[in-house]
Amino acid sequence: MKKLLIATGGGDCPGLNAVIRGIYKRAKKEKDWEVYGSKEAFNGVYSDPPEIIKLTKNKTAGIHVKGGTILKTTNKADPLHFPITDENGNVKFVDRTNILADRIKELGFDAVINIGGDGSQKISQALYKHGINVVGVPKTIDNDLSATDMTFGFQTAVQIASDSFDKLVTTAESHNRIMIMEVMGRDAGWIAIHTAIAGGADICLIPEIPFDIHKLVKKIQSRYEKGRGFVNIVIAEGAKPKEGTIVSRKGEEGSHHVRLGGVAFQLSQQLKDAGIKEEIRETVLGHVQRGGTPTAFDRVLASLFGVKSFEMVLKGDFGKMASFKNNSFISVPLEDATKEYNYVKKDSFIVKGAKGLGITFGD
């Protein structure tokens, strides 16, 4: 029997379970493959004894409708930046990809399907260079992988954010308030801009377009002068003013990333300092966007990614990532998948279209 290992890494995302189920169901059509899952990304491989589970019909039945991942996940213990604590208690990050690759070989796995975003696919690329037969699957609610038209989880996150925004619109109108809703988006503003268009926001602030607070004040004042009496703002967690920085704090132990969140409260204070007298309320959605039942679109996309990734394994199409391009499922080299970040381009039609709808970006 040949052995396949699945890992889910990085932040959790609606649709992860649908990919796992898609891989398992397609693999079961082949008589000589067994499918296993590593707990908490590749931590299960590192563990002694290994925390690896054999996937079965009972374990995968019906999981495509559930959020999260049955394999659990983590954004710590990245093998490219593995945390090591020295005798003085100081943490430094080292590359342990070679150790991970050797361990995968020792455990007898013939192939690996690594489900994750930009960071996870860089790990996939490193493993491939160390001789591991690896296939990547693009996962992120931020939609920030450029080698695919869409990542699963993104549409569900936008739907959750849009539903929340709709509720804030009615309470903003009732109280003549300014509502600021903070959504995820460390470096890319895809969730924010889609939510702003879907919800009819007045202002949308994204990482790619640093904003001028005075232009936001002008927009807000024009709304009140025209008798509308309320304003709704969507802001990505990584947005920043033209002469400022992102709102962040030190990440948790074991992670080399800073922790974002709180920009809505900073913006609120900046608007007050700039002369806005109207009442302002802030809402931070946070991990609500990652949880819950995936939309039908994401279930379909994730399930087909699962099937496609296993068929890539069968063909020996390693060192590549499954991709959804022009309504077709293809494979692209992992190097192409990670070499260019998928930013919202300032001159793109989605930005121009949003401005055409009257949405202000503060630029």
Rank of each mutant, 00 (worst) to 15 (best):
M1L: 00
L5P: 01
G9D: 13
G11I: 01
D12Q: 07
D12I: 11
D12G: 05
G15Q: 14
L16N: 13
N17W: 02
Y24T: 05
A27S: 03
E30T: 08
Y36L: 05
S38P: 05
G44Q: 11
V45A: 11
V45E: 09
D48M: 11
P50A: 13
E51R: 08
L55W: 03
K59Q: 12
A61L: 08
A61G: 12
I63G: 15
I63A: 14
K66E: 12
G67I: 06
I70T: 04
T74S: 12
N75K: 15
D78G: 02
P83V: 07
V91M: 05
V94N: 07
D95W: 02
I104M: 09
K105Q: 08
F109C: 08
V112N: 14
Q121L: 13
Q125E: 11
A126Q: 04
Y128F: 12
K129W: 07
H130N: 15
H130T: 10
N133H: 04
V135N: 00
T140I: 04
D144A: 06
L145G: 00
L145H: 00
A147Y: 02
A147P: 00
T148N: 08
D149C: 07
M150R: 08
V158F: 00
A161F: 01
S162Q: 06
D163H: 12
D163M: 10
D166V: 03
V169I: 14
T171V: 08
E173Q: 14
E173G: 14
H175A: 14
I180K: 11
W190D: 01
A196D: 06
A201T: 08
P207F: 05
H214I: 14
V217L: 04
K219H: 09
I220K: 13
Y224I: 10
K226E: 15
K226G: 12
G227Y: 02
V231Q: 08
E237L: 06
G238T: 07
A239R: 08
E243C: 04
T245N: 11
S248I: 14
K250E: 13
G251H: 06
S255Y: 03
H256C: 02
L260R: 06
A264E: 07
L267Y: 12
Q270L: 11
Q270P: 02
L271D: 08
K277S: 15
E278R: 04
I280M: 05
T283L: 05
G286P: 00
V288G: 01
T293S: 14
T295P: 10
V300N: 12
L304V: 15
L304C: 10
G306K: 01
K308F: 11
F310D: 01
E311Q: 06
K315G: 09
S323T: 15
K325R: 14
N326L: 10
L334T: 02
E335K: 07
D336K: 07
A337W: 01
A337Y: 04
E340I: 09
Y341A: 01
N342S: 03
N342D: 06
V344W: 02
V351Y: 03
A354H: 11
G356L: 09
I359F: 07
